[in-house]
Amino acid sequence: MKKLIFAFITGMILTLVITVILSLGYGVYGDANRLPSQHFHFFGKTILQYNLLEPKGHMLNFGYGLLIISVLAGTVNAGLYYLFNRPGAPKIKPRTIK
């Protein structure tokens, strides 16, 4: 159980950090190329709102969608951990000798 929770938290935090870094990168890229303002959703919840400011600069707003994605990723990671380690799971064995 402890390892399952560990897998969930790691998946969640890693996804959260990576998504934030990618969003920040998108902000810089969008600003440099003067991309129009964008709104990213996930099941109706805001992940990121990118607003291009005039005459220069940009503004990013993060939403609850980011947390939903992270929790989902954590669940998938914990699920995969369970799949590999469930009782009766096939052991990863060396290739058999023919």
Partner: peptide, 9 residues
Amino acid sequence: FLYFTRTLQ
């Protein structure tokens, strides 16, 4: 990669 994400422990 899977060890880093703690999918494998």
